[in-house]
Write a protein that binds this DNA or RNA. Sequence first.
RNA 1: GUCCCCGUAGCUCAGCAGGAUAGAGCACCGGAUUCCUAAUCCGGGGGUCGCAGGUUCGAAUCCUGCCGGGGACACCA
Length: 594
Amino acid sequence: MNVFKEMTREIEACLTGFQAEGLLPAEVDFSRVAVEPPRDPAHGDMATNAAMVLAKPAGLKPRDLAERLAAALAAGDRIESAEVAGPGFINLRLKPDVWRGVVGAVLAAGTAFGDGDAGQGRPVNVEYVSANPTGPLHIGHARGAVVGDVLARLLAKAGYAVTKEYWVNDAGAQVDELGWSVYWRYLNALSPNAEAENEARALAKRPGGAPLQYKGDYLIPVGEALAAEHGDALLAMEAETLLPIVRDKAVAMMMEEVKATLAALGVEQEVFTSERWVIESGKVDAALAFLEERGLLYVGVLEPPKGKKPEDWEPRPQTLFKATQFGDDVDRPLKKSDGSWTYFASDIAYHRYKFERGFTRQIDVWGADHGGYVKRMQAALKAVSDGEAALTIKLCQMVKLLDRGQPVKMSKRAGSFVTLQDLIDAVGRDVVRFFLLTRKNDAPMDFDLSAVTEQSRDNMVFYVHYAHARCRSVFRQAAEAGIEASPAALAAADFALLEAEPELELMKRLAEWPRAVEAAAEAEEPHRIAYYLYETASAFHALWTRGKEDAALRFIQTDEPARTVARLALVEAVRTVIASGLDVIGVTPVEELT
RNA sequence: GUCCCCGUAGCUCAGCAGGAUAGAGCACCGGAUUCCUAAUCCGGGGGUCGCAGGUUCGAAUCCUGCCGGGGACACCA
């Protein structure tokens, strides 16, 4: 039940009638007609701009058309009044029973209230986290994980067929580096107390002269696992046989850890696509052959970047993709100087693979430090799908980790929070998820460990939890008073007894939930859900406190059982909508505060 | 030098694809507790929406330019 949508249809019906009468031309489109709650409640429940938008095509003055439309609308049985205001707005006031109907609709639907059909089952692919499997997830990954996951849930609620996906960068130089660092840990496992000598042995086997890159303790278990599995069998192997073994083991164990951390955060992606698999199955070759056929590849020399010129810059012919034909600023290289594919090449193949699986709408969630990559990836998907697929990219800005206003040192020493798992253990999964949605994704934010668990109004997480807990508290009180408040009793309540003005206000807020879901999904902005919840919680807290000032507004009226049940139904509807919103965010509602 | 993001109350931030008198929290001032959780609520002061143009019935919102802050800029992902 979406009251705003229903009223939009009612208005469109009137307009269609005007067309039949010849008042409006037959070909005007109604897409710009909006029905929304006015900022000022004195202007009624809803306002429409229909007359202003259509006045010009109709050849009428906005206010004249508005008068006609208002008169037609006022004849409807759900509208109490329709008044023309300002430059041609029509302010609508709905009959209270319309709002009361929302309570019943919420009770009937449960947390499915707000589910929409805007998506019409169309497939959307949301790819997020996609952190390299070279170490545990850290705080920086948390925001993308939450934004991506909640966006996926939001789109699902709005009626899209969503696939949640993780791109595993298990190919390339970084992963080889990981392998050599693990080999060192393997040697340490075999002969402890000889770390320096072992490092020299590992480097002797490793081609090239660079030092080991991944020396964090988190690889120790990988070395031990290899020792337990292979004994000393790896020692005699040549580099090319050895590397795949240590590398694959490391990737497997790192991904296991990554998945465990994501699970602890409540993030569960359905598809994990391996970069190595994409390359080895020939998808990169196929994607580039596709571009080649369309004449979008060439060998050329790029200009050096202006401003900051790399030390080792030298003009060098490279295989380039004509990204400039699709809106990028320069053409982009696909091959490294050693002849292997760049990351971009395999990423093109991956996005093409997603398109081949039917995803004409793709969303990637990235860190803001990858911002320079956006245009080329969008260009590439456009090219590789012949313009049939579109990619939108949500960039997540930095999260600064603080404690009592002081920056937390991100050193790897014990005692400071480095990993995402540590953060979840410290403040809880629900706090992490909710808090990371209290800013829009492209605004930087501070995550203050002391502030996020604070219990006050300036903590959105707490404030919303408190509202839900208060709803449950009312029911505990009702049970003590011996009031029958089963789902059946609530559904059978006489909603006409919900007469108080603040009660009606609250019902109007609940009626906005489906609209909020649809708008947030359309805008791909999950943080709006957090703000809707905050405002709804605020409306409920306000009504609660009114009961302290005016006993007649208290939910439980022992001498008026029928009114009490009706109010309990309203409270349950509020609770349900809050639970529905928390469900989108992936947060578990609480029964009471601790 | 180029590209992207940001600029809204003293501070931290919303602003619902262009709507009517721009909102919330914190901080400040003043109130509400015999009573469903005062962990809350009500009221008050506080703004040239960075600046200047443009688009139109109407701009914080869209376009252009400028100023200021952040980030990214071949062969790393």
